[in-house]
Design a binder for these strands. Sequence first.
DNA 1: TACGATAGAGAACGGTCGTTCTCAATGCAA
DNA 2: TTGCATTGAGAACGACCGTTCTCTATCGTA
Lengths: 186, 186
Amino acid sequence: MIDDTVARTQVVEAADQLFYAHGVQAVGMDAVRTAAGVSLKRIYSLFPSKDALVAAVLERRRAQWNAGIAASAARAATVREKILAVFDFLDAWFREADFNGCAFINAYGELHDGNPDVTRTVREQKAAFQRYVADLVRDAGAPEPLAAQIAILAEGAQTTAAIAGTPEAAGQARAAAEVLIDAALA
Amino acid sequence: MIDDTVARTQVVEAADQLFYAHGVQAVGMDAVRTAAGVSLKRIYSLFPSKDALVAAVLERRRAQWNAGIAASAARAATVREKILAVFDFLDAWFREADFNGCAFINAYGELHDGNPDVTRTVREQKAAFQRYVADLVRDAGAPEPLAAQIAILAEGAQTTAAIAGTPEAAGQARAAAEVLIDAALA
DNA sequence: TACGATAGAGAACGGTCGTTCTCAATGCAA
DNA sequence: TTGCATTGAGAACGACCGTTCTCTATCGTA
């Protein structure tokens, strides 16, 4: 038998890919079992319900998002560039073959009604991102309202790129962010 | 028996409200029947399938969006104000009690996988909005890239307001749009 | 080698959904 | 009034889903 940790990772990764590509409700637990190569019994011993699996998938997405943003920011020299690094991260993400919009937004739209945990998780994820941007804006010495504007650009770029099926929204949002930052610091 | 047109309107309005509040997949045709006061047999004589009803609901949303944007723009004196009127429209919408994000984005996230019609409809709706903004930007004599930036702000405001559950994203996006317009015209 | 615990495969169960069908009631034509 | 077409209400059907259960095979241990 494979290790619990390994099995758990396989299940979450398979579920993430399927949920993200097809939507949570469109994917049955049988499909997760087949993709993960882990028996249903095992899956239900690792996660008490499909909702718990969804929560684990969102937690994985949260860690990936934070790591990606941090790595992109680490390549930036100035605070201004760290803010813009958000859009560089988005640009690279939008160009990935399986990009299909923000998993949190998708999950919220699909599940907010019957799953309060999802609503709370998504709301917290977005709030955390806004705090991250707000910290950078403060470090840059710019007025506070800039933070919300940058966050809105990032959200809009994600849905625009997802629906249009093209990545250029990242660059467009980045250009707008540059103008807003410069205006705020002037 | 009530008129076909009246029955159709009742069904679409009831379905719209239920789909928007709870998600399409979470609402059964029985619930639509009860809310609309129209028998299942009648519903299926008006719409060949649930997918067709979803298409009719999205068409209704499209007309409402266009009418709302046009009415808001009609109250504006200058081209610059017509662009900003988009965010005034969003502000009023975000404050409605049942606001729950953009119905097109929600439908896309939930149904894009198994319903290509939805994908096409949503993509076309967003493209039409971008053309609308692009026309205003051209009339204002501003460079073309401003249009995409305004559209991204509008998209981001919708998802931000929906997830946060508060309406202030409209004003924040409007302030950002003002800065971008002024910078583009300078 | 014999045995008991455990795992995987998948059948089974209860529920729900989209769609169709039944059947009694209604309204209209002659 | 009689007969017929049509309607609404809701039962019925087939499919699918989340979850649990059964059964067989396997593995570690003595």
